[in-house]
Design a protein around this nucleic acid. Structure first.
Length: 730
RNA sequence: GGGCGAGUGGCGGAAUUGGUAUACGCGUACGCCUCAGAAGCGUAUGGGCUUUGCCCUUGAGAGUUCAAAUCUCUCCUCGCCCACCA
């Protein structure tokens, strides 16, 4: 075969790797472990997004490097399969969500497999599988029993025309996305998970993990810890972080729908002054105590409010020496996690309401999972309950405690539930499939968790920083307190990828019609080209636009590598030792690629590989061992092509079983020293390294170009940087 | 309103973290190859000029320094996330 035929090559090696089970992890291995995790996709109808590929390729590169470094690597994949779009599609088409989900998953799996990711497919999980949500429900019950779940009235978006509750996403500019009518706020009793109980630990334990600083900051801001003081103004207790400004208080305000004076007054405990009580829109109900002391002299919003309503604005108050009846306290902005949805396509909440006991009773563990019953209509009911409420035979049940008549909870869980513990589920993926699973307890379901947790490296999207990532940390901590999971934190290291935008710089979306289909690219250019392009296109953590032109560059690079393989294979003389320059470059590349992968600077890693292959091309002959080092460095990025060329050189074992190249010390024989005059580069000197400052000075001054610049002006100063630079200041 | 980022050729982007600005790739031009095209290969490619060489150039302006894309300050523009954070 003389031409780089990506279709044939990629299919061949994918089959071979699968047959040899190259990517299956041995959980009991004695080797050092490395758990690499990427956010599992929601199997939507649109198919795999090129953004998924960016994240998955990056971690695939890391996983492959770790294997080559001798680690036992777990790199799993699964499906975050519950969710609103599938349900809405079911409503539209009348087809069961489970069926739609199965079809979407099959498509996603095929797409992911076509890209040659080294996932351990024997551990595939699916959050909508009853074997999976069995345990999501089980964990919810543990939280319920531990007092972490409670029901409370919460506002929801309500469309009076369609008579359904709406997700935030379905409300566009205050209007219902379906009918365009106005959306109201309604109070509804919802299940809450008490994440606020963990606010302090979620904040504090960020010190224990290796997350990028902006992510830590964003989580801290979201949790919103603030130390302040509770002060009573008569019957109203306010929260302030600035107690010293109390003398400047000219009014008290609590949350209201409009700005209005209540007609009531209280006394300022600091100076016994009588001040009015107002209701104000700008005061937030959920922050602090929901009431503030208005200090226009110190707070701009207070000032604005006071101006608008002609309230007195005092000049700067004296510092308070001792405030009256105050109490030091800590408040958080974080709110409890609303855990119910009035929807069909989610995990049923495994509780029943018993009339006789007048209590919510947990479904006994032996009766788990509470399976989603088949329904005819997926529409929410007119009353805003989930479609499950319409199935009387399912709702009506017996109280597990007293045997009396009882009714099932018809709310389901949010999609964040299943994804909160999936890193654990991968460890027990094989057990989840077993028929005997009901006899397992949680500890034997998730084997070796002590050894395999925390996740060593978790890559995902920035948009999940304050939702999934925080929920999952909370879930883990709750499990930890119940002695169900090891360690305080689930994820040791977190990184994030930048968004891939369409070529115009806009978001890719179906409605804009600018979505790039990876299938076509794999077909036309090959999986390796797509992988290399996505790693080369720009800095990994930054948003970047898609440019089809760049694919051509990646493809050309791989074609040249292919040709290089043919050239080396057919060359007559077997070169054993490369020339000095090449040897140095080879070792620099080993170092550069290794370091760049660790820092996720994939674009410069590929660039270094291109420079090396360009240099190989210029040589009349290349040592086979040198080319093999290059191929090994390339193999995490372009696993199929690297394998093909590697085997073509006579190797019997897969390149992916070969060890990562070691750096060798190579003596540097020549350095370029920049000669500057007044900070401007005027000449470059090539010399042996280790030149002393005095010798360098003489060499520099001896250069004719430099002579011309200096003429007879006196040298005021000399600055030298060894083996790098000399600056002559005139 | 708050927070986090980012502004470098025609384009995507490099820059040893203060030490040759524009690596690598795309595009473009010319040449080779070819009956011809495509592909491939080679050379060139920030701008300007009075072109052995010189001057300018990292959003704008100032500052620190022998030396600034990099550090400091002021301003401008763009992206993302959150929200009336007491």
């Amino acid at each position: 075969m003389k031409k780089y035929n990506h279709r044939q090559i990629e299919k061949k090696w994918q089959k071979e790797w699968q047959k040899k089970k190259l990517n299956q992890v041995n959980q009991r291995s004695r080797k050092k472990k490395c758990y690499c995790l990427v956010e599992f996709p929601y199997p939507s109808g649109e198919g795999l997004h090129v953004g998924h590929i960016r994240s998955y390729t990056a971690m695939d590169v890391v996983a492959r490097k770790r294997r080559a470094e001798g680690y036992e690597v777990l790199y799993p994949m699964g499906w975050d399969a519950f969710g609103l779009p599938t349900e809405n599609y079911a409503i539209k088409t009348g087809r069961p969500p489970a069926l739609i989900t199965r079809q979407n998953i099959n498509r996603y799996r095929k797409q992911l497999q076509s890209l040659g990711f080294s996932f351990d497919w024997s551990r595939e999980i699916n959050t909508s599988d009853p074997n999976y949500y069995h345990w999501t429900q089980w964990m919810f019950l543990q939280f319920f029993k531990a007092g972490l779940a409670c029901k409370a009235k919460m506002p929801i978006n309500w469309c009076p025309q369609d008579k359904i509750g709406l997700a935030n996403e379905e409300v566009v500019d205050g209007k219902c996305e379906r009918c365009g009518g106005p959306v109201e706020t309604r109070e509804k009793k919802q299940w809450l998970l008490r994440i606020t109980k963990y606010a302090d630990r979620l904040d504090r334990d960020l010190d224990l993990v290796d997350y990028p600083e902006p992510i830590k900051i964003q989580q801290r801001n979201w949790i919103g810890k603030s130390n302040g003081v509770l002060i009573k103004f008569g019957s109203i207790e306010i929260f302030t972080t600035r107690p010293e400004t109390i003398f400047g208080t000219t009014f008290i305000a609590r949350h209201g729908n409009t700005d209005r004076f209540t007609g009531e007054y209280v006394v300022n405990p600091a100076n016994q002054e009588k001040i009015p009580i107002w209701e104000a829109v700008y005061v937030m109900k959920n922050v602090g105590t929901g009431a503030i002391m208005g200090v226009p002299a110190h707070d701009e919003r207070d000032l604005e409010f006071a101006r608008k309503h002609n309230l007195p604005i005092k000049e700067a108050a004296k510092a308070i020496t001792e405030f009256v009846g105050g109490k030091m306290t800590t408040k958080y902005k974080l709110r409890d996690w609303i855990f119910s949805r009035q929807r069909y396509w989610g995990e049923p909440i495994p509780l029943v309401w018993c009339e006789r006991c007048q209590k919510w009773q947990p479904v006994p563990e032996k009766d788990l999972p509470v399976k989603l019953p088949p329904v005819k209509k997926y529409q929410p009911t007119d009353t805003g309950e989930s479609p499950l409420a319409a199935i009387e035979s399912w709702v009506s049940t017996k109280c597990p405690k007293c045997g009396g008549p009882a009714r099932r909870e018809t709310d389901t869980m949010p999609n964040w539930a299943g994804s909160s513990w999936y890193y654990l589920a991968y460890l027990g993926a094989k057990n989840l499939k077993r028929k005997t699973k009901n006899r397992l307890n949680f500890h034997s379901l998730i084997p070796n968790s002590q050894r395999w947790l925390p996740v060593d490296w978790y890559n995902g999207g920035l948009e999940h920083t304050t939702l999934h990532l925080l929920y999952s940390r909370f879930w883990h901590k709750a499990l930890y307190d119940l002695k169900l999971a090891p360690g305080k934190e689930p994820y040791g290291k977190r990184t994030s990828h930048g968004l891939i935008l369409a070529s115009g710089g806009e978001k890719m979306s179906k409605s804009r019609g600018n979505v790039v289909n990876p299938d076509e690219i794999v077909k036309r250019f090959g999986a390796d080209t797509l992988r290399v392009y996505e790693m080369f296109m720009g800095p990994f953590d930054q948003a970047i636009s898609w440019h089809e032109d760049g694919l051509i560059g990646a493809r050309r690079f791989l074609e040249r590598v292919y040709k290089l393989g043919l050239k080396v294979k057919s060359q007559k003389a077997n070169i054993k030792v490369a020339n000095q320059k090449l040897k140095l470059l080879l070792n620099q590349t080993v170092q550069k690629v290794g370091e760049d992968i660790e820092q996720m600077k994939f674009n410069t890693a590929i660039s270094a590989l291109m420079i090396l292959s360009n240099n190989f091309e210029k040589e009349p002959a290349v040592a086979i061992s040198d080319l093999k080092v290059f191929l090994k460095l390339l193999s995490p990025f372009a696993p199929h092509l690297a394998e093909e060329v590697w085997r073509g050189l006579g190797e019997k074992l897969s390149i992916h079983l070969a060890p990562w190249p070691r750096k060798r010390q190579v003596k540097i024989v020549k350095v370029k020293i920049v000669i500057q005059i007044n900070g401007q580069t005027r000449d470059v000197l090539e010399t042996a390294p280790g030149l002393e400052a005095e010798a360098l000075k003489l060499a520099a001054l001896g250069r004719p170009k430099i002579q011309l610049w200096i003429k007879d002006r006196p040298i005021r100063r000399l600055v030298t940087v060894p083996d790098r630079l000399i600056n002559i200041v005139l």
